[in-house]
Design a binder for these strands. Sequence first.
DNA 1: ATCATTCTTGACTGATCGTTTAGATATGGC
DNA 2: GCCATATCTAAACGATCAGTCAAGAATGAT
Lengths: 196, 196
Amino acid sequence: MARSCNFDRQEKLILAMELFWQKGFAETSISDLVGHLGINRFSLYNSFGDKQKLYRECLSFYLDNYSFGASDTLLHEKAGLVEIEAYLARFVALQREQKYGCFMQNAVLEKSLDDESVLQECQRLFCRLQTSFTQVLQDCQARGELLVNVQPHQVAAFLVLQLQGIRVLGKAGEYELLDNAFAVLQGYLGTLNTKV
Amino acid sequence: MARSCNFDRQEKLILAMELFWQKGFAETSISDLVGHLGINRFSLYNSFGDKQKLYRECLSFYLDNYSFGASDTLLHEKAGLVEIEAYLARFVALQREQKYGCFMQNAVLEKSLDDESVLQECQRLFCRLQTSFTQVLQDCQARGELLVNVQPHQVAAFLVLQLQGIRVLGKAGEYELLDNAFAVLQGYLGTLNTKV
DNA sequence: ATCATTCTTGACTGATCGTTTAGATATGGC
DNA sequence: GCCATATCTAAACGATCAGTCAAGAATGAT
């Protein structure tokens, strides 16, 4: 056989993702990547194909490993309105830490128009988010915790929209606006609860 | 004196804005601009300074002339919850037409991190939006149309967040998600009304 | 009509872009 | 140890990038 690769591919993929996440596709040059990843130019091409392919792979990795990270609260069986509210609260708080915003959202705004596959990947996340929220809300309703006239899939869509809005205001550093908006959102979620 | 400029500066500024709006800062080259504006490379530099300056001027022009375009409904004196709802409905509908999203939002996500003045311009719009909504809601409350326990500036912040979320989902082509989310938003606005 | 001034033009700068090539180096099976 | 194979390295590719320059063309006051 032959010589084996002397770096960890996934480790380098994560480094590339970080760079694209921070700087976007266009503003990240191959030279930037070479420097940040610490591997040779050709090795980068050999391992990941061209810039587009690497970007797409980074996006996929982000979607599978970073995007819905705070969702443990939502996925356990007995999750309800309280958990949704806690999830959103943590998501709002997260904006003060993640200065670079959301890689997926950055990708939608920068590249969805000229790269169909990027758009599809992002839509896949929206679908996944809506499905998760819908599931939790349906369970709530089954347990009698959620008003019967509420449509789970509609509220789920509404929550997905909230996440996107929060991300934008977070990237813009509009933390006070965020806190005020979240107070209203909290109030709304309260009105859905049968127990109050 | 001397020779006068043989093109309309503002007309060319609008053309530049369109291009930056569609393609973003990084993906728009000076050559692209030269082609789209139909003026010479040097004339462009002579009239608008460098690429950064031109971009910033385009952003300012957008903020002053395009961003709050559908706001006529909100600015007249007797505007209330019905007008806010109508404004949001039109804003949702607008997403199916404006494929390139919001120039300001694109700017926030692409350039706010490495250009402080871009960030400030965008924050200026957020402030303006919140102020307008707050004014309308305060007037509502004064007329007894809005529940007294509602905080106008908080709901205004909430509405600004909705606009941003709508824009993101619009750019992602998530029209069904948008419609479902809007239905919920509509329902929420209804609960604020004293008349119902 | 003259002339200073300003705009227009197209070629040009050095730098950087994404990508590729050829040759040196290391690996694993025999 | 040897060979086949794959990876690594440095240099280079043509193209394009943002920005500039010198020379010609048009203007308006005199």
